[in-house]
Design a protein around this nucleic acid. Structure first.
Lengths: 203, 203
DNA sequence: TGACACATACCGACTGGTCTGTATTTTAGA
DNA sequence: TCTAAAATACAGACCAGTCGGTATGTGTCA
């Protein structure tokens, strides 16, 4: 089987990227091991260092090419054209919570939040690329609330930016505390309180 | 000065503990180095392994003997007998935010949250001892809200447990996002939104 | 044939942890 | 109260293992 080993650089790179995401997600960036990554991806150090300059570069690529797109798809896109953010956010939260509970994502929490907590004080480039995602998320939520106000679905005196910043923070915190408690009931509890907060923004 | 080097095990242990807290706070638990800890504490590996079984044991001790008491003093105690949690929480938050901004705590975030995010999925004993702190915090807030309801300072239809769980999560998330953004204005922004939420709980 | 895409062997640095030796303090017995 | 023994509190060299990273070789493809 050695000689038939096909060559597909795009594929190899992708496998390394995915394995790196898994490893960093489970063990953190500092705790993550390149050796385990290449083992998991069924390739070698040579391949890894051919495609990436080093561990940090690999980390940046994971943020840029795995976490960011995933996040955009799961959170930003569904809200992109919403004119009723309260209703839509509730739906998205419910979906996300169900999905996380179903496939055990509760154990390791939010990959964005995890990396951000660990790496942002240690490496400025990490912080900036992660912050990009947060900013995008906040802007998406804020824009949706601005449209919601125009559409009469949200009270006119709420500040979209303020509310968006708070919701993003609350969501991150909820994922974190639920992960630490290993208790999905806690996630549901905080979720209800968040929904109550949403309702307090209705006209 | 060698001969006058006095011996005080309590003191040595304490210095190691404090140095360990600093190291883990800055570099995380996995990224923290025992060598740096003993250097910082001006002692040696022998002393460290005499007082602690190993790195993990040292970590548990940091949680139990440094983080937990600090947390209790800063957050739980001031709320212990409050009958007006909305007013008192606002005051405590303001104090904490001011303090964190002043001494640069914004850079490294909340030590409890940091350790929890990193270690709770990796080590059950870590998770449990950290969860103890969260539970105590939630219970303190919930009890204060229960008293607040009785005192007529909080709406009667709010669920103390639900609200407490949400506030704790929100606070953790706010510290985390502010740390990642390295932006104290964001902390103030989310703080205002949190205060608005508090006000929505008034009768 | 030359550029690319790996594989493999290997490097020095550093890790958490152990071992042995020794100075200090506490305890026990006369 | 003086002293011997035992326990404690370190110090510092040292260990095997792992880390991220590199150098070199080899097969593949245009």
């Amino acid at each position: 089987m050695k000689t038939t080993a096909k060559r597909s650089p795009e594929n190899t790179r992708g496998k390394i990227l995915q394995a790196a995401f898994d490893e960093f997600y489970k063990n953190g960036f500092q705790g993550g091991s390149l050796n385990r990554i290449v083992d998991e991806a069924r390739t070698t150090k040579g391949a890894l260092f051919h495609h990436f300059k080093g561990k940090k570069d690999l980390g940046y690529a994971v943020v840029r090419e795995v976490i960011h797109p995933h996040f955009k798809q799961q959170w930003s896109d569904p809200l992109a054209h919403s004119t009723d953010p309260i209703t839509d956010l509730k739906r998205i939260f419910r979906q996300c919570a169900k999905r996380e509970i179903a496939n055990g994502g509760l154990v390791h929490g939010c990959p964005l939040n995890n990396l951000a907590q660990e790496m942002s004080p240690l490496d400025e480039k990490f912080r900036k690329s992660l912050e990009k995602i947060y900013v995008a998320w906040r802007e998406t939520v804020a824009a949706a609330f601005a449209r919601g106000i125009k559409a009469g679905k949200v009270r006119k005196d709420v500040s979209p930016r303020k509310v968006a910043a708070f919701i993003v923070a609350a969501q991150a915190g909820m994922a974190g505390t639920a992960k630490n408690a290993q208790n999905e009931e806690l996630l549901l509890q905080t979720g209800q309180a968040l929904f109550d907060y949403f309702d307090s923004l209705k006209p």
